[in-house]
Design a protein around this nucleic acid. Sequence first.
DNA 1: AAGGTACTTTGACCGAGATCAAGTGGAAAC
DNA 2: GTTTCCACTTGATCTCGGTCAAAGTACCTT
Lengths: 247, 247
Amino acid sequence: MTLKAQFDHTNCSECPIRHRAVCAHCEANELEELEKIKYYRSFEAGQTIIWSGDPMSFVGSVVSGIASLTQAMEDGRTQMVGLLLPSDFVGRPGRDTAPYDVVAKTDLVMCCFRKKPFEEMMVTTPHIAQRLLEMTLDELDAAREWMLVLGRKTAREKIASLLSIIVRRDATLHASSASGPIVFDLPLSREAMADYLGLTLETVSRQISALKKDQVITLESKRHVTVPDMGRLMEEAGDDTDGGFLI
Amino acid sequence: MTLKAQFDHTNCSECPIRHRAVCAHCEANELEELEKIKYYRSFEAGQTIIWSGDPMSFVGSVVSGIASLTQAMEDGRTQMVGLLLPSDFVGRPGRDTAPYDVVAKTDLVMCCFRKKPFEEMMVTTPHIAQRLLEMTLDELDAAREWMLVLGRKTAREKIASLLSIIVRRDATLHASSASGPIVFDLPLSREAMADYLGLTLETVSRQISALKKDQVITLESKRHVTVPDMGRLMEEAGDDTDGGFLI
DNA sequence: AAGGTACTTTGACCGAGATCAAGTGGAAAC
DNA sequence: GTTTCCACTTGATCTCGGTCAAAGTACCTT
């Protein structure tokens, strides 16, 4: 099998997990072993999927719903360090314990593989490691992009940046690439947004109100957002880059 | 070759790049091809090794010296998103352009491999991808740990955190694992520390003075630091975790 | 319809860190 | 020796976002 073929699962329309995951449907055509160690798990909104420090017995992908990766200090301060949207991979081949909490933010379904057999497959099936490397590099880029947001952006820019990446992830999932007004639902509470942005929920609320007053966004309800001009929003985010951002 | 053997280059004492890199010495014993595409490059302090957005023709490891990964906004605000110490890997197999500036902070030597042949080798030599995956996961953990620092820690905690990771990286390089006072040189200017911590250089200076006044550290000169009690420093950093931190 | 709960908004005030501005010290250059 | 330069320190003031508090809103259950 050529390298091209190995990376060419990007458009399997059958697959609920799409291109960024180790796709059960795609893999199964090549590797009946993967099918054997595959199983599904459901979680309710608010449920903790993995506790930081616990041994991890599985890896997998988000099929539907949204989860967060969160780090905490002992005094209670918390920082969300990643968002898991459908197609995102969870887990660390070669790692025994989870480095952070994984919490379902909505009802959520995961497609899991038992870790041990999965790791064995990585040895015998090289292109799995290569695809995981691709995905991990994407996540690393996203994490570093986010470091700029956390370290240097103002509260208003942080909010605009978060809205931008949510829109962008939505766009890649729904393939609705068009100019003109964009409508979407916020998958996160104000508190969760604050955790992601290194702010307080009050500041998040105030800045959203300010963006609304300045007509950068419109709110049909507290969670339902319209962006009349995406270019304007990205300006507010202080973003020149229109690529990147894959959290 | 077994999985264990594949990951067992961790203690090659000959190799200047040590365990986290694709080690030219180690690999050469198995793969004369790697030797063929290997070459060394030297840089002076302050020199930019890679410009953000430029095409990248090589990957490689830091042999000696220190470099930074930096992201910038168009208005000049910058955020350092990673430190490259000896043994760290630079470059993205499968990526065409560099996502951030790489700048030598001290005089620096890199061991490089031309990217194209390196990528071809990744296909034929599975365990290279597996080792790169390991390393990338380490970097991702470090980046996310740093997101907590940037998003939630106070200026004083940020400084203590930075000193902690420098000490820790120093320790793994010099294998000087002992309790008692620790002495080391700051490889970064106050401005570079500020860039890493999302602060201004004035705040960095003030907080270092404060830590000195409170006898958490001693300064023999502006860059030469003594830490009488490492536990105290980590307390100041707000760190419970004594693992992790591999930036 | 009434009450409860969780989420959100808004206001008043405060403080950590940014900004602006001098001043210091030490090493290299002349 | 002294001049220059650069990294660093310290001071004064301001501002953005945090903190504390209260009120508003939507969605439950009863």
